[in-house]
Nucleic acid binder design. Structure first.
Lengths: 187, 187
DNA sequence: CGCAAAAATTGATTCAAATCAAGAAAAAAA
DNA sequence: TTTTTTTCTTGATTTGAATCAATTTTTGCG
């Protein structure tokens, strides 16, 4: 998987278009079909859904990760989600056809792509287990284990929505446990 | 997708081994690697995880559907889940290698398999949205929309766990709404 | 079939997280 | 910088679902 990933990143560098997003700039709206894969050089992006005037965050990307509205991208169906920059963000945009070209270059790339997909699927399973975890504190702990720097990248209110709790609750959990108080990663 | 599915079912008929499961018989335990795909002729199967002495249901299969511990099957990694028959159940068992043989038979089959995977992924996204839906009543409504006969197939207490609520709460919701009271499907 | 066990329902009570409401801190804009 | 706006924190109160508890209903078994 890692081989594919570095290969893909090189391909990104050579073929993808760089783009600078301003805060709250939308990459995709609900109902549109996702045609791109985004590599994030700096900044942060969120994928969210709009349910009855309330936004619910589905996924975050930042700091060297690849993100898009994956289900829409794969199935080429209208997305249920919005994709938006959380702050000034620099990305590389790779189109579906460019990706397909890349996959066609070698068997290695194809295998890598499959592994990439499988990994995305595995992540999705982890996400399901996260959401089934009853206690709010445990949900936070699980997610922080995988993404220890989350609070440095994403505003608390958005993390709260991702974790299915209110900002007030998240703030209190954070205070009571030592979770999210980042001694390690600062300086 | 449908073509692949019927093709796969024919292949199931020709190559898969039939098996009769008694109630509570386990097909897979946590930590084991899933090597099979199960087609359910009759009965019902659940996939669940064991968290601190409490079982949480992840997925159900019955009545002509295909089920297994999919993440483990795809990644060939130890499963986080148990797979168990909820009652006397008749299945066909197709191994991973048999499936690969089937996929290799034609480009159509390969494409179908990809579509099958994509569909599984899309289902997983739907599941995520279900779990993010705040109100217990709304969670039930969403799931029943996709699986109207759920209550005829799966005991209430297992549905409750799947929906992240107690059996008492589910029972009360069912009473207050008309959801799950199956006038249509009986007789 | 009748009996035992398991599942579902119903009611009373508790409790944890949501909501409501300020104020403090941080970030963005002027 | 100062001002304005947004985000985060903290406290008080409410509320909806969990828990506790007791029947009733259903299912499975001898």
């Amino acid at each position: 998987m890692t081989d594919f990933y570095t290969g893909l990143l090189n391909f990104f560098e050579q073929h993808a278009v760089r783009k600078l997003l301003s805060k709250e700039e939308l990459l995709l709206k609900e109902g549109q079909v996702e045609n791109n894969l985004y590599f994030i050089h700096s900044g942060a992006i969120r994928v969210f859904l709009l349910s009855e005037y309330e936004e619910v965050n589905i996924r975050f990307g930042y700091n060297g990760s690849v993100i898009n509205s994956l289900a829409s991208f794969l199935l080429q169906q209208p997305s249920s989600f919005y994709t938006e920059a959380l702050r000034k963000t620099e990305i590389s945009v790779l189109t579906r056809s460019q990706l397909q070209q890349f996959i066609g270059l070698s068997t290695e790339n194809l295998k890598g792509y499959t592994a990439f997909m499988e990994s995305a699927f595995a992540q999705q399973i982890e996400r399901e287990i996260d959401l089934l975890t009853v206690s709010p504190a445990d949900r936070l702990a699980r997610v922080l284990k995988r993404s220890p720097t989350l609070f440095q990248e994403i505003p608390l209110k958005h993390i709260a929505s991702y974790l299915r709790m209110t900002p007030e609750t998240l703030s209190r959990i954070r205070k009571s446990t030592t979770l999210g108080s980042d001694k390690s990663s600062v300086l």
